[in-house]
Structures are given as C-alpha cells and as structure tokens.
Design a protein around this nucleic acid. Structure first.
Lengths: 210, 210
DNA sequence: GGATGCATCCCGGAATAGAATGATTCTCGA
DNA sequence: TCGAGAATCATTCTATTCCGGGATGCATCC
C-alpha cells in the first residue's frame, strides 16, 4: 500500500455553476483527488460518466431534465460499481431513502459541508458508506412508519395540486370512494390532521415536490 | 473617469460554504472586484458590514438565525446607501418583491449565474438596479392581483400546518366565521381551488415557507 | 398454498369547508 | 376629515371531506 496511489477521479453533477466552482476550488488543493469532469444535467452526467469513468460522482438531486435519482439508477444500471455521493440542498428522509436505494453510497446536505466532503470522497472511494448524522437522524425518525405506495403518492400529488377527490377519481379513472380510501390511508400513514397537512408533511419529507 | 479606480469591495453572506468558495473563485480572477469578507448568518453579516463597509453585498435569503430579508432591512436601516444583491435558490415572486421592497437592488437565482454575476456586481455598484429576466417575468405575472394581508398570511400558515378553521380561530382568539372569511379571501386572491391548493401556490410564490 | 399487501369498490353519517351577502369597527393615509 | 381597506362577526346553504365499517380480485413472496 503506497501513500500516493492514482488520484481519485471525481465527476461533479450539479446545475448550479457556482457550486461546481466551489467544489472545484476545494478539490484543486488536494493531491489525491482529481476533478475530471462536470455536468449540469442528467443526460450530460451519463455521457461524462461513460467517457471519464470517475471513481466517485457527486450528484445533486434537483436538475432540469432528468431527476438525480433517475440519473443514479441509469448510471448504476450501466456501471454497477459506480460510487455516488448525493449532494443536495433538501433534507427529506424519503428522498434520501430513495437515493440510497437507487445505489448512492452517501447523502450530504450542501449546507453542512466543508472538509467533510473531501473525507467523504475518500471514504466512499474506499468502499464505505457515509451518511451525515443529520440525515441519519431523519431516517431514524421514520423507520417505524410504513411508506406510501406509489398509487398513494400519485393521489397525494393531485391533492397538492388542489383537486377534489372527485376530480382525482376522474383523472385516474377510478371511483371516488377509492380515492377516499387512498386519502385516508395517506393521512394515517403520515400522521396528518387533514389533506393540507398531509401535503406539507410530504413536502418536508421529500415524498412529493412542488 | 479612470479605467481602474478602487476595486469594488464585496461581502458574501450565505450559509453554504461551497457556494461561498465558488463566488470567491469567480471573483479572484477579477482585478476590479475584491472579496473583502464572508458571513454565514444574519448577525455575522451585520458585524462584517460594519467593519468592512462593502460596496456591494451578496445575500442569500434562507439562513439559520435571522432571515435574509430582516438582515437587509437591518443593514439598510444602519447604512441606507448599502447596495445589496439577493442570491437565492428559490424563485417566488412575493419573496423577490419583499426583498426589493426591503432595499435590495437585484434578485438573482443561484441556478442562473455565471458571468452575469460579475456584471451584476459592477452594475449594482454603479447604482443601477438589475433584475433577472426570469424573476422579472414572475413579478410581472402577479402585478395585477392584490397581495395577501399579514393577517391572511398568518391564517394561511396555520392552514398549512394542518389546523381546521375552528382551531385557527381558537389560536388567534377570533370567531371561526372570521377565519372562514380570511380563507375565502385567500382562495380568491391566489386563485386556488381549495385550502390545500392555496398552500402549495403560496409555497411556490414564497408567501409562506415550510 | 397461505400470508401479505395493494388497489379497487360500496355504504352511511358526522364534521368541516366554502360561497354568498351584509354589517360593524378601526386605522391609516390622502 | 373622509374614504378605502382591514379585520371582525353573523347567517344560510351546499359541497366536500373524513371516519367507521366491510368486501373483492390480484399480485408477490416465502
């Protein structure tokens, strides 16, 4: 084991140019880490991954075209050994859960980063997982309650858009009694007082987006 | 008018270290702009402003302690000539409106920035206002409709938290008929179908926060 | 093959929300 | 000081939401 093997090749995927600059500046001082490519959306991320084969990818979740989660899935499908660190503004346990399930090794909040980021890059490159304590705490808060089904999320999104149960029934081509059932289930799973509360809780937890 | 007067002194206020790094990196290459101080919250921002008297301040809106808007108001109260550029992740016409009313000269979205930022710093330092076209378009979308009153915003926040009209009435010590009146007014002003829709619209427009 | 979870449908009833309208008080700025 | 806008309370009526309960196909997983 030499003290200076090949530097770790890093790809940054984020639609904020300023943040990419920041990461570039941070990495530039490190001898064992090399920033080899940047991308500002999912499509580009996949291309750059193919051409540069980075050891570690830093990935934002919200991007113009393809969502970060879908991008992770696509990359991991093609390169199952890909190591990915999610770097995002938003908390939300469910979002983190989905990202980790999609194959990310780490989930970091942009607000809580400085030298941790470099350590995390090294750690993930070495094959370890690394979850920030804030994120881990959020995940732990909700391990007991069961997740919404995809249908329920679909219904909830329509609720958030201001549709009545009847309208949702029409749009999904199901009976409105069914919609009522879904809404009841959503309220109980989220511990919400009413549909409005359910929407704000779901937004906080990253279950739905605006 | 010489071509190289004193460089423009800039203060950056943002709780994201990475973003501050990015701005620092961007400014470092400019001869006519100097980054003289950084702050990661409102209190610190005011201190740094006092000690450094920057020509232009870049300010994020969401920060741990004091809100960006309050910080702008505090700074402008003490230094009415302060020139402030708001640099934030979130759109939301009402948020932008409030920031501009508080005395900001410019409102930029972090996602849409690269060299515009430098131009904007120079432009604002020269005494001009500079509103990004995306933000201007959003502002224009809502110039006609009248704003919510502070009481209405208060009610809406309680609605978002999942309170029934009756509960809101209790918490505000008013009759629930009054609450209904406020809610009706909110719905009509925002063009919402129901209270849930009102909440999501208000979140999008920066009228309330999660 | 049984268990489990999901999506679907149905019912009835109580509570809540929302529309429409009118009236009173108060403040603040023109 | 006059008027506009706010906030308040009230009444009536209808639509919608939410809570019980129960029931059916249909997957998947062990």
């Amino acid at each position: 084991m030499t003290s200076k093997p090949n530097p770790i090749k890093v790809l940054v995927v984020d639609d904020h140019p300023l943040l990419r600059e920041g990461i570039a500046a941070l990495i530039m001082n490190q001898t064992d880490i090399n920033l080899v490519a940047e991308a500002s959306n999912g499509r580009e991320a996949i291309e750059k991954f193919r051409s540069h084969r980075p050891d570690v990818t830093l990935m934002d979740l919200q991007m113009p075209d393809m969502s970060g989660i879908d991008t992770i899935i696509a990359i991991r499908h093609e390169f199952p050994q890909a190591r990915i660190i999610v770097l995002t503004t938003y908390a939300g346990d469910v979002l983190a859960q989905r990202a980790l399930k999609a194959g990310a090794q780490s989930y970091m909040l942009k607000g809580h980063v400085r030298k941790d980021l470099l350590d995390t890059i090294r750690s993930v490159h070495a094959g370890r997982k690394s979850i920030q304590s804030e994120v881990a705490a959020q995940l732990a808060d909700h391990v007991t309650d069961d997740a919404l089904t995809s249908r329920e999320v679909e219904v909830l999104a329509l609720v958030a858009a201001g549709n009545s149960n009847k309208l949702i029934a029409d749009k999904l081509s199901i009976a409105d009694e069914t919609v009522k059932g879904h809404v009841s289930s959503i309220l109980s799973k989220l511990g919400a007082n009413d549909r409005t509360h359910a929407v704000t809780l779901a937004l906080k937890r990253g279950i739905i987006q605006l």
